[in-house]
Design a binder for these strands. Structure first.
Length: 434
RNA sequence: UCCCCAGUAGCUCAGUUGGUCAGAGCAUCCGACUGUUAAUCGGAGGGUCGUAGGUUCAAGUCCUACCUGGGGAGCCA
């Protein structure tokens, strides 16, 4: 004898009047004596199930009495419209099977918890409605990124995670690598992206990156996902156009398709609705003047600090570009600004509402001699950059690209206070498990 | 690495100038209830107050060190 048709909770409204089977986990049990309710979650939605004692066989009622939070169950019942139930339908229960019981000490309750406790129980915390909404929006953004680039003829290139020391100089995770000495977890795919741009024209990478920085803030992870487009023949201006087009696309896509999840997160969508290209552009010199006028003591030539960035986006509802920073504040591979050699052709895109740098981008130095000089100035090991310099020896070309931090972008769009909620299993300097 | 804050029941926290200070809510367990929405009501169990020293007649409370965590700086996405 087989169960009635197995239906996912999201599909229940189409089965009103039928008897079906649902399978999921108990999020909540309420009893009022001889009528009782269990709310079931299956990942697609939640459904209230109703148990009426004098309409059920005694053994089913007894099994109901043993139900606990997060037990997994298979329930047979009649689907009926019920405005008082979340989802608009409820299930009048005929049979209940406890697939996997759950002891009474399930740690996560429908109440406030501290972040440390929640992260210790991240594997269970993921079951909460809020975490589901975040995961769905993250997925929507990831899919939208692929759609955006695919529609525009970009080729996705997967770059190595294990690398020799190359790239930027912030903290590296090292591991032994056969007879090759140390390998390092990639902090960027950009240099490989440049090689791919010379081969394929317009490319992007999408993958994890690793920073062994001892950063304990709401905006940092040691492992995060980054999207790095690299476009042959783009200059810095075209680079910024691409950035604002992408960011606008992502925001509008989420607004279009994930209103329910934004609502679950209580996100103020009016702030997102204004996120459309073009974004404001502030060159570095003007940015210094602005932050000084707002009380900063930062001088021309210094990098903008976190406080400065906050001052810049103080009244903004859209992301803001700051472009052409001093050479001394930026990486060796950025192209010297021909109109002001003290600066380089680069930009940071600052998210509004205090979410920090969402994008860092630049036109790349394509002059062989200047690039060699910069590598020497920075004291970097020349021999590690042989292949990178080859890109300038054999048919050098103007090109530009950027890195979009996925978690910062998702956190901003979701309006979350902390980046760690945005990734299923966050890695931070003192958190390697679960 | 530096600065600030916190650590009391399974969870979230209260605990006044050192002296009934071992407390509450939630959760759990037992009981009541035929439409609950974080149900409600009654009852019960549950703590080496982060660790180690010190001051004191007396320390959850004051001092020192350490540990753990949080937030921030730097660095970055």
């Amino acid at each position: 004898m087989s169960d009635p048709l197995f239906v996912r909770i999201a599909d229940l409204p189409a089965h009103a009047g039928e008897t079906v089977t649902i399978r999921g986990w108990v999020t909540h049990v309420r009893s009022s004596g001889k009528v009782a309710f269990a709310v079931i979650r299956d990942g697609t939605g939640v459904c209230q199930t109703v148990f009426v004692k004098n309409q059920l066989p005694p053994d089913v009622w007894e099994r109901f009495a043993a139900l606990t939070t997060e037990a997994s169950v298979s329930i047979v019942g009649a689907v009926r419209a019920e405005p008082r139930s979340p989802g608009g339908v409820e299930l009048g229960v005929a049979d209940l099977v406890i697939v996997g019981p759950s002891p009474a000490d399930y740690p996560i309750q429908p109440k406030e918890h501290g972040i440390d406790f929640l992260l210790d129980n991240r594997h269970l915390w993921l079951r909460s409605p809020r975490q589901r909404a975040i995961a769905i929006i993250r997925n929507e953004i990831e899919q939208a990124i692929h759609d955006f680039f695919y529609e525009r003829g970009f080729l996705r290139v997967d770059t190595p995670i294990l690398t020799a020391a190359i790239g930027e100089r912030s903290g590296l995770f090292a591991t032994e690598y056969f007879d090759e000495g140390n390998a390092y977890l990639a902090q960027t795919g950009q240099l490989y992206g440049e090689a791919a741009a010379a081969a394929f024209g317009k490319i992007y990478t999408f993958g994890p990156t690793f920073r062994a920085e001892k950063s304990k803030t709401r905006r940092h992870l040691t492992e995060f996902w980054m999207i790095e487009p690299e476009v042959a023949w783009n200059d810095s201006e075209a680079n910024m156009l691409l950035q604002e087009e992408l960011v606008s696309y992502l925001v509008q896509r989420v607004l279009e398709r994930r209103r329910a999840e934004l609502s679950e997160l209580e996100r103020d969508v009016t702030k997102l609705e204004s996120v459309k290209a073009p974004f404001d552009r502030l060159n570095y010199t003007d940015a210094i003047a602005l932050v000084q006028a707002r009380g900063s003591t930062t001088q021309w030539g210094e990098d903008l600090g976190a406080e400065d960035e906050a001052l810049i986006v103080r009244d903004a509802t859209r992301p803001v570009f700051v472009f052409n920073y001093p050479k001394t504040a930026k990486a060796f591979y950025m192209k010297e600004n021909p109109d002001d050699p003290r600066t380089v052709l680069c930009d940071d895109l600052l998210a509004p509402e205090g979410f920090g740098e969402m994008i860092g981008g630049s036109q790349r130095e394509d002059d062989y001699d200047k690039l060699v000089a910069r590598i020497k100035e920075e004291g970097l090991p020349m021999d590690a950059y042989g292949w990178y310099l080859d890109l300038r020896r054999y048919g050098t070309f103007p090109h530009a690209g950027f890195g979009l931090g996925l978690e910062r972008t998702v956190a901003w769009i979701c309006g979350l206070q902390h980046i760690r909620e945005v990734i299923a299993f966050p890695r931070m300097m003192n958190r390697l498990r679960p």
